[in-house]
């Protein structure tokens, strides 16, 4: 936030390296293939998180300028997304025409990924809350406003429709999030004691991480 320049300077010396766009990346995070990763701004990558940007689509034998451009990004994460400690983010792969191929992964805005998860989803839309110790198997698709309960294993290729709650091993749709999911009282600074809610705007959470 523009009104807190002091806080920004402080974090520069702390655990997090803050980029120009406000991303906070822990010095203890494990990042491979940095050129293939994009962070949308105000996004937090915590300690012991492993981003596998090195797992990219193999370079096409036939020169295809469009394809080459697409394959350059393997992990793209949106704005105000928080990836908690110990989580591994790995682009999904599968056999395609006889070759094991990695597909780029897209994570939206205001997504919370809890500690100790393994994420291999094809895409995670915005306002998704993933609790701790979850496994998202290759090529699953998580739509908007979804809550994933702790210790869930979302099976490969599963599509989780918007507004659902997923739990269990294998993960099933166990319910719907309430109409008030992600709505905080009084927008930025609700008196909830946290200033942010699951599935809501995570700016406040990002701000207090340092």
């Amino acid at each position: 936030m523009a009104t807190r320049p002091t806080a920004t300077r402080k974090t520069a010396k702390g655990e997090y390296i803050e980029t120009d766009s406000g991303n906070k990346v822990s010095r203890k995070a494990n990042i491979s293939g940095t050129p293939n990763i994009t962070l949308g701004g105000k996004t937090v990558i915590m300690a012991d998180v492993h981003l596998r940007g090195d797992l990219t689509r193999p370079k096409a034998a036939t020169p295809d300028p469009k394809g080459a451009k697409q394959s350059s990004t393997s992990i793209s994460i949106g704005r105000c997304t928080v990836v908690s400690t110990g989580t591994v983010i790995r682009p999904p792969g599968r056999m395609s025409r006889g070759v094991y191929t990695y597909y780029p992964m897209k994570i939206g805005d205001n997504v919370f990924v809890g500690p100790n998860c393994v994420i291999q989803a094809a895409s995670i839309s915005s306002h998704v809350h993933i609790s701790e110790n979850c496994v998202l198997q290759p090529l699953c698709v998580i739509k908007e406003n979804v809550k994933i309960l702790p210790h869930t294993v979302v099976p490969a290729n599963m599509v989780v429709p918007p507004n659902s709650v997923v739990g269990g091993r294998p993960g099933r749709i166990v319910g719907e999030v309430g109409e008030g999911y992600g709505v905080s009282v009084g927008a930025v600074a609700g008196g909830s004691g946290e200033g942010w809610v699951e599935g809501g705007d995570l700016r406040e959470l990002v701000r207090i991480i340092k």
Binding site: M46, P115, N116, G191, G193, E194, I208
Partner: peptide
């Protein structure tokens, strides 16, 4: 949520920082 007050409770001993640590650590 927009019409009746929100009632929340937390231990007095927890600081925002410890709440955060609970949320995001191993």
């Amino acid at each position: 949520l927009n019409n009746i007050p929100k009632v929340s409770i937390r231990s007095l001993n927890t600081t925002p920082q410890s709440l955060l640590t609970d949320l995001v650590t191993i």
